[in-house]
Write a protein that binds this DNA or RNA. Structure first.
Lengths: 149, 149
DNA sequence: CATGTTGTTGCATGTATGTGCAAGCTCTTC
DNA sequence: GAAGAGCTTGCACATACATGCAACAACATG
């Protein structure tokens, strides 16, 4: 089929600008809610999520980095914060002593479970609000739910 | 009409995660391209865009801040960088001496015009690539172009 | 084999930048 | 003046980039 809306630089820029505004607004609300209600940063919450869903609750730094879209040094410090909070601990890789596993603790799982409710409620509310405020965004969000939900 | 994909926390979270990955990847490519080819940060490029399209090429700090999604202090420093580069200059508000206008210079407009090509090409390329790599993202991007382009 | 060489991988650390928050300064308004 | 608005500055933090170190891998040489 022919593309009904072919790629166009200026149009893409306008579209991306809108998407950007939506992204910034939603992420900001998520960050504020998590920080205020659970003392967790957004990257920290997402890291706990990845760990909680990984096999045996552990991941190597590198896998965490790619999952979070952060670079390796950021993850080093992120995990240091999680360790200090008691949500994770380090475990050496037995077969490759260069490797380090970060393992989520029970306390970490609990924290994540609690925060998850906040995250999902805030997210849905923020999306609904944005959709209500701007019809075009409403269409976009509905489409995203259809294709990515 | 009934909503074909009603709001659902877990589904929204999955959707947002995907959107997030797309956002991070595209923004990162834009930032790298602008920095390497024009020595401009993403916020700086966007600030030049807002200024270039504003009436008389000038905006108050506050308006710039809300347009960029940054707070006042960040804009103070952002504008300081643009001023140092010669892309903007300050102009006092004649009727309210608390206010400060940031005005784009000819050099700033030129820089922005040059960088705009890079920005739009990189953006379209990144979107096409993401769309090609993940069918669901392709559908989302097509939908976004339809509703926001 | 054993050993040395070279290059790569996984992570940590130093440094710089961009940003947010809170306090402060100047100016306006009442 | 007192209160508030607009902007700047001091400080703290999260992140990116460059570098360093230790462990591994592949290969050559004896």
């Amino acid at each position: 089929m022919t593309d009904p809306q072919p790629a166009d630089g200026a149009a893409d820029a306008r579209m991306w600008s809108r998407l950007n505004a939506l992204h910034a607004q939603v992420e900001s609300r998520l960050a504020t809610a998590l920080q205020r209600r659970h003392g967790l940063g957004l990257s920290e919450y997402r890291a706990l999520g990845f760990l909680a869903e990984a096999a045996r609750g552990e991941l190597r730094m590198q896998d965490l980095a790619s999952g979070l879209g952060l670079n390796q040094s950021s993850v080093t410090r992120l995990v240091a914060r999680l360790n200090e909070a008691g949500y994770t601990y380090r475990d050496l890789c037995p077969d490759d002593r260069r490797g380090v596993y970060t393992v989520i603790t029970e306390e970490g799982r609990t924290r994540r479970r609690e925060a998850r409710a906040t995250y999902e409620e805030t997210l849905t509310a923020a999306l609904e609000e944005a959709a209500g405020a701007t019809p075009a965004l409403g269409a976009l969000i509905a489409g995203a739910r259809r294709s990515l939900g």
